[in-house]
Design a protein around this nucleic acid. Sequence first.
DNA 1: GCCTATGATATGCAGGTACATATCATTGTT
DNA 2: AACAATGATATGTACCTGCATATCATAGGC
Lengths: 136, 136
Amino acid sequence: MEREDLGSLFGRITRRLIVAEGPLLDGHGLSMWGYGVLSQLAQEPAANQLALATAIGYDKSRLIALLDEIERDGLVVREQDPADRRNRRVRLTPAGRARLTAAQADIRAMEDGLLSELTGTEQRSLISMLSRLANE
Amino acid sequence: MEREDLGSLFGRITRRLIVAEGPLLDGHGLSMWGYGVLSQLAQEPAANQLALATAIGYDKSRLIALLDEIERDGLVVREQDPADRRNRRVRLTPAGRARLTAAQADIRAMEDGLLSELTGTEQRSLISMLSRLANE
DNA sequence: GCCTATGATATGCAGGTACATATCATTGTT
DNA sequence: AACAATGATATGTACCTGCATATCATAGGC
C-alpha cells in the first residue's frame, strides 16, 4: 500500500494537539505533564512515584520537581506507604480532581472539534485503533 | 463518548514510532529531520528553504545546519534560483533518492509490523483518517 | 536611486529532553 | 549485623526546541 510515513502523520497530529492544548492548560494553571499526572492519578492512584513516571512515560528524575509543584498547588498529595516506607503513594486531592475535570472539559471540546472532520463511526473506530496501538 | 485523551494516545504512539525509527535511521546515516527533508523533497523539490522548513514543520534557523550536513553527504543540492537569486532551490541528488528509498524500506517494514495488530480494512481506514487530521 | 520586504544565514536564550550518576533511607536476605 | 536491592531525591551533561534578533544580498515598488 502506498502511503505517507506513519511517523510524519502521527508527528504532525501530535504537534497540532500539543499546540492546541497549551493555552487551554495555561488557563487552568497546568503544564502538559502536570495534566498528564492528574489524568493518570484519576485512573488509578500511584503505588509509588516510579510507577507513576513509567505509566505516563515521564522521566523519574524530573517527576520529583513536577510533583513538588502540583503538590504545592494542593492538587496531589504524597503520603508514605506504611507497608513500605520507601514508597510515596501519590493521589489526587479533591482540588486536583476538580482542576482535572475542568481542564478535561476544555480539552475534550477542542478534540471534538478536531474530530468533527470524521463521521461518528469513524471517530469510534479511530479511538479503538489508537488505543490498541498505544497499549500493545 | 467516554474515551482517553487524544493527546495521550497520539503522544504515546508518536514516541513509540520515534524510538523505533532511531536505530533504523542510524543504520542509514540519517537523522530524523534529515529523513524528513529527503521525504519531503521526494514529493516535491523545494522552491526555497523557507518553504521547505514550513512544509516539514521545522525551524528555519536550524534547517541551515541540517542542509549543510546532508548536502555535505551528497544527498541534496542547493542551487540558486535564476529567477530570484535570493531563493535556494533544494532538490534530491540520485544518491539522496537512493538513501531515502533504502531507509524508507526499513521504516515501512517497521510500521507494517506495528500496524499488523489491525485488519487490512482498518489499516486503510486509519491512514485515511490520519491524513485528513494531519492536513486539515 | 531610495525604501521596504524577503530569503539565507548566524547566534543567543530559555526551556525541555533523555540519560547517567550519586546520595540517603528503607527493605529483605543471609 | 552485614549486605544487596530498591525508591526518592538531587545533580550534571549533552542535545533538541521554539523563539527572537541581527546581518547581508537581492528584489520590487515608488
